[in-house]
Design a protein around this nucleic acid. Sequence first.
DNA 1: GATGAATGAGACTTCATTCAT
DNA 2: GATGAATGAAGTCTCATTCAT
Lengths: 216, 216, 216, 216
Amino acid sequence: MNEHSLSPPPTGTRAQLVDAAERVLRAKGLARATTKEIAREAGYAEGTLYLHFADKLDLVRAVHEKLLPAFVEVVRHLPERAGTGSVQGNLTELAHGALRLYRDLTPLGSSLFADPELLRRFRALLAERGGGPHRAWEPVVAYLEAEQALGRVAPEADPAAATLLLLGACQQLVFVELMSGPETLPFHDRPDPAAELVATLLAGLSPGPNEMEPRP
Amino acid sequence: MNEHSLSPPPTGTRAQLVDAAERVLRAKGLARATTKEIAREAGYAEGTLYLHFADKLDLVRAVHEKLLPAFVEVVRHLPERAGTGSVQGNLTELAHGALRLYRDLTPLGSSLFADPELLRRFRALLAERGGGPHRAWEPVVAYLEAEQALGRVAPEADPAAATLLLLGACQQLVFVELMSGPETLPFHDRPDPAAELVATLLAGLSPGPNEMEPRP
Amino acid sequence: MNEHSLSPPPTGTRAQLVDAAERVLRAKGLARATTKEIAREAGYAEGTLYLHFADKLDLVRAVHEKLLPAFVEVVRHLPERAGTGSVQGNLTELAHGALRLYRDLTPLGSSLFADPELLRRFRALLAERGGGPHRAWEPVVAYLEAEQALGRVAPEADPAAATLLLLGACQQLVFVELMSGPETLPFHDRPDPAAELVATLLAGLSPGPNEMEPRP
Amino acid sequence: MNEHSLSPPPTGTRAQLVDAAERVLRAKGLARATTKEIAREAGYAEGTLYLHFADKLDLVRAVHEKLLPAFVEVVRHLPERAGTGSVQGNLTELAHGALRLYRDLTPLGSSLFADPELLRRFRALLAERGGGPHRAWEPVVAYLEAEQALGRVAPEADPAAATLLLLGACQQLVFVELMSGPETLPFHDRPDPAAELVATLLAGLSPGPNEMEPRP
DNA sequence: GATGAATGAGACTTCATTCAT
DNA sequence: GATGAATGAAGTCTCATTCAT
């Protein structure tokens, strides 16, 4: 499974079915997405589905498989940006991308928990690919380590912990937004939640020695 | 049937059904939890279920309703602890509680995304209760503000952002752990991820003023 | 079962249940009338129903039993009117009463055909009472025979056939009205269908002797 | 699947299901006809039923739809017979046909009153078809008008009323026969009730002209 | 007599899956 | 490869009926 042949031959049928399944899953939810509707959405007969997938869960798994790369895409070029722009700017941009990503993927991804068998298959897919959501962390960690080497991030900072803090905050913001409604968020009236998260992460909570002194 | 016991005790049929439903939901997942099995698990006939709940989704909603208080319980007494112990200790304890909470609730809570109708009803429940996951943020924010007043947290820090960073990191840690398997975590070999998150949050990423070189 | 004790003792419960059942049957139809709703309508618990009736069909049968007398009531005093007023007036009044009766009873009575077991029990009731819809014919026949004796009805006329013609026309008019809607009736724009039926029945279809040409 | 046979032959699955449903409805009644038994009677799986009908009521409606033409069939060629044979003979033959028709359709048709929703759908069907039981009247009325023109029916007679009298009598005869049992009928010992109805309708009840005084 | 929670058989309906064409 | 009618197991839900209080 190298990078040249990730997608099956140009026989579009399989891909059309996966795309249709994704649309239906987004619209109706896992519990209410039927093979009949997916097939109709794709413009094929219901039986055709079983020429390309072992069963319905296999098709759903294929949808998630298709979405996997999007996860890494957001952070892909981050390490290269070490030393360019400002750390704050780079992380804010990352946070923006993460928010977009989580808004897009949370409904589909969280649905996996509704069906243990589906979750099992998804885990098997991740294992075989050596993938997983944590793969998104690595480039961020690498970026922060590079910035540390450049002196733009404190040498004592823990890049892995910092990554989890930032991405986790983005994910939770979206999770709560989707679950309770956007109007319930403390941040819903702030122009740029991502920027505030980054600012706080950079500054830390501890009162700095300098700051104990009164400012002019 | 006297006037003193109009509302049945919490050990009544309804509560038993909700408890049984929770057990089955945890064991089989929303997609594979059947009314038949829930009734059997509770020791009642299937029809009894419909004496106490409008339909299956109503029962599932009741399970989530029962779990709602647990969310706030974790952070309930946090504000009172401002000024006691150390900020780091208090936040680390919070993080431990949050990790336990998310491990417990993520599978059930995330399942809501599988069924838009269920999610809709759950949102309605939250709206009428004035609740929502964000309610867990408020005591943490209050705690941090109290510590700010005591001078143990930097006055420029944004308590809301800090809360989201810490709780979000905990949630994501659990989410990824449950979705990809614990062995995939960068933190799985560290003795206390919670402590590391708190340490990083307190210190921040920015290099100290002494360490900063003037920019051109 | 003589005429003095047709209705049960003044214990109102049974009668209240029958009345409630009648209301629900009229409102919802036999297929959608539930014991739960009947009991609620009567202001009793569901179990109470089974203290007074063997089962649901027994209750429905009791409703029909209660309605039986109404059938004869319409024609009860007709024989006494022989020789009074005009035959046409008396029959028109009868037809008016029959139309009212059929409008009232057709929905309930016709429902019996939906359940052979219910119909069987209803027939048994009629047999034991020596009753039946045809009992309504007898007073009409008696009236016509009395008028024949008085010379106000042709001596060759068949009173039984005439009765069936008049009452049948009334029943069909209502049946079609209820089944297809009143606006579909050819008679829906006529002021008094009953009068027209009676006029035609009295006059007959045959051309008068003057108009008739001798047949070879 | 060529263009010549887009609509399946009348022996298709749908028609088989409708036929089976009719048989089961006749045998068990609307209240006791189950989808399981209908499917078994038709030789198909229960689920197949829902490929061809929206729900059970839709299937029942289709049964009634199939029976609609029978209603008009009985009277279809009557107008053409004006002037042929005798009026009495033609009407007697009509009455015979009507009796057969009502014996066949009353149990099914009356069942509609058991379920208001079913009745509603049936009315909608009639409305869209421009049909209804009253459509059976029109050819009879046309026939009588033709006979009037030929002088074989009195010019003052009301054809619509006469039609309703005759067909109504036939319907009531059958209705009472089915509801109370044939042995309860006053006519059950007469060789040809239809002939007696027609004779009475033709002659009328009024005493002959000799006995009648001239009207002013 | 009255209650009403509990029952459980069974109804209707859905839907993933198969297979002859 | 594509079809789509047919399948039938399984699901949710209803409701007449019972019985301990």
